[in-house]
């Protein structure tokens, strides 16, 4: 992209076009577009196996897409010249199963990348960790180990860990699916808070009520294709496609 020199404010922070990905003979993504404007909360919905998770994982190259283009803040993520480790610092990722490091304290979980990737001093990194822990409402858990925390607390630490790097965007892969119902609210409250702070997020999730109240945009995927996308209101109240209607009817029981 030679237009970077002119430095226009890009319309999209994340611009994925025609992304394709197959596992063996299974085509999981058949040319998918995902456009995310800065400061927006985008919800990916769709049945399991629809490709939501794979699409998110392609956006930080945990999966290598087979084709298409992914531009993140003017950086071509799929170019061989792109330093993927540097690019990943700008892309936070929150996992369904939290993936906290069990051998490290909460504080070290958060500071590891700050110290080893950003090069912060331990003191600065610890201060940053304390700030993040306050933000997710767990200021007294720095010395705890992940196994000592509830699922909801672990996921909030997961969010704090990705947020600490001050990423341009955070991708969340079903962040509440592994949680007991009574713990979901605490995690969604943090997500809502991040949204109000203007942090750009893409969330694959089945939390439809939350999507309706918080999402700026909803993208419905099925069978590796974007079937429909639009405002939360339009997708949930006035879906245009039959497949969208069927999916929404199913999850409402």
């Amino acid at each position: 992209m030679s237009s970077a020199a002119a430095a226009p404010v890009p319309r999209y922070l994340l611009e994925a076009r025609g992304v394709r990905k197959s596992f063996g003979t299974t085509e999981v993504l058949k040319s998918v577009d995902l456009l995310v404007e800065p400061g927006k909360l985008v919800f990916l919905i769709g049945p399991s196996g629809s490709g939501k998770s794979t699409l998110l994982r392609c956006c930080n190259r945990l999966e290598e897409p087979d084709g298409g283009s992914i531009i993140m803040d003017n950086v071509d993520l799929l170019s061989p010249r792109t330093d993927i480790n540097a690019a990943r610092r700008q892309i936070g990722m929150v996992f369904q199963s939290f993936n906290l490091y069990p051998h490290l304290t909460v504080q070290k979980n958060i500071t590891l990348a700050l110290r080893k990737v950003v090069g912060m001093s331990t003191a600065d990194a610890n201060a940053r960790a304390a700030e993040m822990l306050a933000l997710v409402g767990l200021p007294d858990k720095a010395a705890s180990y992940p196994a000592q925390l509830s699922g909801g607390q672990q996921q909030r630490i997961g969010i704090a860990r990705s947020l600490a790097l001050n990423p341009k965007i955070i991708l969340m892969d079903e962040p509440t699916s592994a949680l007991d119902p009574e713990l979901v609210g605490s995690v969604l409250a943090v997500v809502k808070d991040l949204r109000d702070r203007g942090i750009t997020m893409v969330i694959a999730s089945h939390e439809m009520n939350f999507a309706r109240e918080a999402a700026d945009k909803v993208v419905f995927l099925d069978g590796g294709l974007v079937i429909e996308h639009g405002s939360a209101e339009n997708i949930f109240l006035r879906p245009q496609e039959e497949r969208t209607r069927r999916f929404l009817a199913q999850i409402r029981h």
Partner: peptide, 22 residues
């Protein structure tokens, strides 16, 4: 678990750092 490596790499740690620290 595979997710440990993925979490580490997603924060920008290199393959070697991921091995050493995670």
């Amino acid at each position: 678990p595979k997710g440990q490596r993925e979490a580490a790499r997603s924060t920008g740690l290199s393959a070697t750092q991921t091995l050493l620290y995670v």
